[in-house]
Structure formats: structure tokens, C-alpha cells
Simulated scan of single mutants.
Amino acid sequence: MKRIVFIVGVAVGYLFGTQSGRRQLEKLRVFASDVWADPRVQGYVQEYEAQAAAFAKQQGAALWEKAVDTAKSATSGSTTKYDEPVEPLMDADDANPAH
């Protein structure tokens, strides 16, 4: 592990600390920008964005239902799933002990 950290440190030092390293870093940046702008890559990006949006909508609805069910069960005065009474973490006296 120490060897990997050392190698990464040397590489970062080369890239940011030397003029030739900064030129290599600029070439890498231009290459990455060209790849990102490629229409094939953008097609995949749009496809996965649509999938992520659909998944978020689906999970959002399920999460909303679960939150509503949890809120209803918490406010109904029922007990926990272990049949223990629900007690407040802090009552009014604990919140303001000076009065």
C-alpha cells in the first residue's frame, strides 16, 4: 500500500510540478474533452440519464409511500414493532430545566 501511495505521489508531482508534466496533463484534458464531446458517448449519456430519471421517479414514489406509512404509524400512538411503548427522547422538563 505504501508503494502505491508513493507512486501516485510521484506521478502527481510530475504532472503538476514539471513543465513537461503539465503539457501531458493538458493533452490528457483535451483528449478527455474530445471523448466527452463524441456523439456516441453523448448518446450513452442521454440514455443513462433517462434511465436514472425513471429510476428516481419510481423510487421516489416508493419512498414517499414508505414515509407516509411510517408517519401514520408513528402518529397513531401505536407501539413499536417490538411491542415496546414509544417514549419521547426528551420531555418538556428536560428541554428547559431552569423553569
Rank of each mutant, 00 (worst) to 15 (best):
residue 1 M to R: 08
residue 3 R to T: 13
residue 3 R to P: 04
residue 4 I to W: 13
residue 4 I to M: 07
residue 5 V to Y: 07
residue 5 V to K: 07
residue 6 F to A: 14
residue 8 V to R: 05
residue 9 G to Y: 00
residue 9 G to P: 07
residue 13 G to A: 12
residue 14 Y to Q: 04
residue 14 Y to P: 10
residue 15 L to G: 08
residue 16 F to I: 15
residue 19 Q to G: 04
residue 20 S to E: 09
residue 20 S to T: 06
residue 22 R to T: 05
residue 23 R to A: 08
residue 24 Q to W: 09
residue 26 E to G: 01
residue 27 K to T: 15
residue 28 L to M: 11
residue 30 V to M: 07
residue 31 F to E: 12
residue 33 S to R: 05
residue 34 D to I: 08
residue 36 W to L: 13
residue 38 D to V: 02
residue 40 R to A: 06
residue 40 R to G: 08
residue 40 R to F: 08
residue 40 R to I: 11
residue 41 V to A: 01
residue 42 Q to K: 05
residue 43 G to Y: 00
residue 45 V to Y: 09
residue 47 E to P: 00
residue 48 Y to A: 06
residue 48 Y to S: 05
residue 49 E to S: 07
residue 49 E to Q: 12
residue 50 A to F: 08
residue 50 A to I: 08
residue 51 Q to E: 15
residue 53 A to Y: 08
residue 54 A to I: 01
residue 54 A to D: 14
residue 55 F to A: 14
residue 61 A to T: 10
residue 62 A to N: 06
residue 62 A to F: 01
residue 63 L to W: 07
residue 65 E to L: 04
residue 65 E to F: 03
residue 71 A to C: 06
residue 71 A to Q: 10
residue 72 K to C: 03
residue 73 S to W: 09
residue 73 S to M: 11
residue 74 A to D: 08
residue 75 T to C: 10
residue 75 T to A: 11
residue 76 S to Q: 04
residue 77 G to V: 14
residue 78 S to N: 02
residue 78 S to L: 04
residue 79 T to M: 06
residue 80 T to E: 00
residue 81 K to M: 07
residue 82 Y to L: 11
residue 83 D to K: 04
residue 85 P to F: 01
residue 85 P to E: 02
residue 87 E to L: 13
residue 87 E to V: 12
residue 88 P to I: 02
residue 89 L to D: 12
residue 89 L to R: 03
residue 90 M to L: 11
residue 92 A to F: 13
residue 92 A to P: 07
residue 94 D to G: 09
residue 96 N to L: 07
residue 96 N to T: 09
residue 97 P to F: 04
